[in-house]
Design a protein around this nucleic acid. Structure first.
Lengths: 350, 350
DNA sequence: GTGAAAGCGCTAACAA
DNA sequence: TTGTTAGCGCTTTCAC
């Protein structure tokens, strides 16, 4: 297959290769429509399709986009960004060349130069969670940063609007009537910018609602259910009047720990404790009992956006990152706060 | 960058382009080592690196491998296969072109012909779960099937050894002393081959251990925690002497439901009920309380294997799929069975 | 309105 | 041991 060349079509149609090329790329309208039709028909009959390699050599356009990412493997998120980006590429007849660097800087810089050398038409640089990074050397101008932002700007970038997401989570709890709302923050060494932004959103909402954020209600947890359990245990050992009635967790894994701890200790959710997560990890949020109210990360949309910019389908500023909305997903883990103390205590012995 | 061509190097080194090519591809040992050194040094100095497009046009070798998959997005597994495959490609200086078909047959056949047209050197066809499928039309000979097998053979393929995995799970329970072991099977419409194989492994182990598989102990569940809860609820409503003391669930999501139900109903795991899952989904298995003993799916290894075959690094039969080991991951959800009845009953009211 | 010719940057026969 | 020449298959001036 694919053995037929432009010369074959030309011969069969009784025209020159140049004419075939002109017709098939409908570059020139000056060709008689009669000839056009014939060429098209013949090309179709013989099953001609241009050799993209030869074309690329001549035009310096390859129809490929390089996508370099750290660690696609370890995060379930990656897939959604990739899928979004890939989908846009496909819709526009582009191919994506994927290189996963597994987080190694040497692999990364190799990957970048290989991709540049292969004359990709554009490039997307994806991180597996929202962070600020120094732009890797050798990145072509116009490279789109996906789920990360270059330290000193200079490139288009798209990241989740974590500040607004933090606000949405806190607002959900405030609207339900909670006053004592805890934030279980990310306690990992390399605390990401997302954590900071969510915290700010949370604080601002409390203040606007006339609630003074209680420093005792901001605690840290490792990202895991165990981390969440430890954190909520600490929170619940506060003097009763200081205990939270609502908890906003940095992510769903931590939130899962909170829910598990609650079950274990006879607290009902949301009757005795409301909880809001972040990430909308299907495997966790939807499976928890009750299903978790959480803030979703718009991975697919970010992937699409990045590819659209990379393909020049969309304008983007290189000065500040594009903020992508993080919609709240309401499930069943938020309700009005229990009446002070009593209800909760009675459950504890149940 | 990358503006320097072979002719520039040739001129700078005072040789012909052909010589430069010969030296840099060290195809011919006949070139004097003196010339070789000079050419290499010059190429290095001017930062020459060959244009892969031009090279491909001439050699008909592109250094790319096409990877078509259904739905990378929706499963957390995909990433691990992709990462494994991509890693091998990188180690061998190959680039992978990824096309996700999102399960659409038209997109799939488009993708295949596009990739063939782009002269990929090899192809991997990946499915997101172990299944048997008719080989798509247009697939080049030697395409490697990843996590699926072609209905009528004819292509190399790699799939998890689900039969052995089913055996391992059942054996784990038998070894712990269980006699009444349930299998919660996949109850989805399109019941995958994996479910059948695991079931067979489970049955064979029981029989070999002198246990007659009780049909009442094989039930079905939708793949979700809710499905698992419903299934275990049914199992536990059996007459006491028939109830299982150990459960092997088709996958971790179902197993999670079992664990959740147990917590809810005051059954301790593993004291009152042992459970084994399948998949080793990090987000679930490791996070459950207690952490789940489960059978792991060797996604990364399968991805690596497939790419090795695609690159010709490894021989593979086209007649029968390569079976990849599914190692059991021992955590804490399996223990010896409770003494008949008593222990369990006392807990129920706890 | 169409064709001839040149050339993208490289490699592989063949000469020298 | 090295250089010359001829393409790989396409697009694109430029001439007719």
């Amino acid at each position: 297959m694919a053995r037929v060349r432009i010369a074959d079509v030309a011969r069969a149609a009784g025209v020159s290769p140049a004419t075939v090329s002109l017709v098939l790329n409908d570059a020139e309208s000056r060709i008689s429509s009669e000839t056009k039709d014939r060429v098209r028909r013949v090309a179709d009959e013989v099953g001609y399709s241009p050799n993209p390699i030869a074309r690329s050599l001549r035009t310096r356009v390859t129809g490929t986009i390089g996508l370099v990412s750290d660690r696609i493997a370890t995060t379930p998120f990656a897939g959604r960004m990739l899928a979004g980006a890939q989908e846009v590429a496909r819709e526009n007849s582009r191919l994506v060349i994927l290189v996963d660097t597994d987080g190694h800087p040497e692999i990364e810089s190799d990957a970048i130069s290989t991709l540049v050398n292969h004359r990709v038409d554009g490039m997307v640089y994806a991180s597996m969670y929202h962070r600020v990074i120094p732009a890797p050397a050798g990145l072509p101008a116009g490279t789109v940063f996906l789920d990360c932002r270059p330290e000193n700007g200079g490139y288009p970038a798209v990241v989740p609007d974590d500040y607004a997401g933090g606000r949405a989570a806190a607002q959900e709890l405030v609207d339900a009537g909670h006053q004592r709302i805890a934030y279980i923050d990310d306690g990992d060494d390399d605390r990401p910018i997302a954590a900071q932004l969510r915290l700010e959103g949370y604080r601002d909402v409390l203040v606007e609602a006339g609630i003074t954020p209680d420093p005792a209600l901001r605690v840290f947890a490792q990202t895991s259910a165990a981390g969440g359990q430890a954190a909520i245990a600490g929170l619940m050992s506060l003097p009763e009047e200081q205990r939270p009635t609502g908890v906003f967790a940095f992510n769903d894994r931590i939130a899962a720990g909170v829910v598990m701890w609650a079950h274990r200790h006879g607290l009902r959710i949301p009757e005795d404790l409301s909880v809001v997560g972040y990430d909308d990890q299907q495997l966790i949020a939807a499976e928890l009992d009750p299903p978790l109210t959480t803030v979703s990360l718009p991975h697919a949309a970010m992937g699409r956006w990045a590819m659209e910019v990379a393909l020049g389908l969309r304008e983007a500023s290189s000065d500040s990152p594009h903020l992508m909305d993080c919609p709240i997903v309401r499930r069943a883990s938020v309700g009005p706060p229990a009446l002070l103390g009593s209800a909760r205590d009675s459950r504890t012995t149940d």
